[in-house]
Write a protein that binds this DNA or RNA. Structure first.
Length: 364
DNA sequence: CGTCCTTTGAAGTAG
DNA sequence: CTACTTCAAAGGACG
């Protein structure tokens, strides 16, 4: 556990947090990753063999237990990391998550944004996102975040109804929405008038925080100035884009009428955790480097890579995930993860199988 | 078409 | 409080 080297924590807010994940230009990172990919794959394969051997002698529950112990360790670390920003008043971790809506804007749509996604990126277009939206966020993350208080409690119910703060949270100071502020594709929580629940919608609009959004950018992205489709909001039908777009382009009255007729509630998805954010960012790389497509295999690699990350690197994702949770909590105050329980009709844990059966990690 | 696989982490539930 | 369960993303595989 290299990233568990205790103590520290004081460097989590270092300014280099946004440079490590440069997709292009950061040669050191790239080299490290490339080297890691091959060795990692080999390592992974061998480790899988080991796991196979283990699982042959014992059941998968043993492995699972070990994983959970690992997870516990990382959970501790995560908590530690989560604490860090709190100790750094005025630090860069105080930077709010600057609102996904505009962070999600595809780079080409940004005035001075880097136009070209990295060459090694496979055109992995994810549902609900603009095809041009690159996967890499951190390399363009604003190095000087706005000093907007983000002391919003993460405890559900504590600040969940402080819609007043939401506007402050999202209303970035002028100039803070820089072209460099980008985000991996979509963790965009769509805007209220475009599929939001009413309460938040009204509060946001009344607080006039939207004017801070770049209308031109929104229009360029094919959206109504007040709305951007978000993957976190998925219509029950699954036709997210169409539905969202439909709602956004229609006049308000039409929307309301339609809503009354069809009170379909879009499914609000869980906010992505640190690892999910990491996966989203790195998936394309792994696919390109390993010519793999199976997500199961890719996720295994990403899982190992995740553990190989330095503490600082992971801290970025923990912090981003924390902000995403905050934002999600503010956007959907009454949302609960329980809302989505039962959407999937399977029980993964019941289906724990021998992981050694996975031979799909070949990187050829 | 729906589910599984596979990963970690967050949040929910049950005892 | 602890342990367990479910879901989040992703896309090939499979019934």
């Amino acid at each position: 556990m290299p990233q568990l080297n205790g103590g520290g924590g004081d460097d989590l807010g270092a300014n280099d947090e946004m440079i490590s994940f440069k997709d292009e230009g950061d040669h050191e990172e790239k080299i490290r990753e490339s080297a890691f990919t091959e060795s990692d794959l080999a390592d992974l394969k061998s480790s899988l063999v080991n796991e196979s051997e283990i699982s042959q002698n014992s059941n998968s529950a043993v492995i699972r237990r070990g994983q959970q112990e690992d997870q516990r360790i990382y959970t501790d670390k995560r908590e530690h990391l989560d604490d860090v920003p709190k100790h750094q008043d005025g630090g860069m971790y105080k930077a709010p998550y600057s609102g996904y809506p505009f962070l999600m804007l595809p780079e080409p749509y940004l005035p001075n944004g880097p136009v070209s996604p990295s060459s090694n990126k496979v055109s992995v277009v994810q549902q609900g996102m603009h095809p041009l939206t690159p996967l890499l966020p951190y390399d363009h993350f604003n190095p000087s975040p706005p000093h907007i208080p983000t002391d919003v409690s993460q405890k559900p119910g504590v600040h969940r109804h402080q819609t007043q703060e939401i506007s402050g949270f999202y209303s970035l100071p002028q100039g803070q929405i820089t072209p460099s502020m980008n985000w991996p594709n979509q963790p965009v929580y769509s805007l209220p008038s475009c599929g939001f629940r009413q309460s938040f919608s009204s509060s946001l609009q009344s607080s006039s925080s939207f004017p801070r959004f770049s209308h031109s950018l929104m229009l360029q992205s094919g959206m109504h100035p007040t709305g951007i489709p978000h993957p976190a909001i998925v219509p029950p039908s699954g036709k997210q884009d169409h539905d969202q777009f439909d709602r956004c382009i229609y006049p308000k009255s039409h929307q309301e009428a339609k809503r009354e007729k069809e009170p379909k509630k879009p499914v609000i998805k869980k906010p992505l955790n640190a690892f999910m954010l990491y996966m989203k960012e790195m998936r394309a790389k792994v696919i390109a480097e390993c010519t793999l497509k199976e997500s199961a295999a890719i996720n295994q690699i990403l899982g190992r890579r995740w553990h190989a990350l330095t503490r600082e690197e992971q801290a970025k994702y923990y912090e981003l995930a924390r902000k995403e949770r905050q934002l999600h909590m503010q956007l959907y105050p009454s949302w609960s993860a329980r809302d989505n329980y039962g959407k999937k009709k399977r029980r993964k844990r019941d289906k724990q199988q021998d992981p050694s059966t996975d031979n799909s990690l070949d990187c050829s």
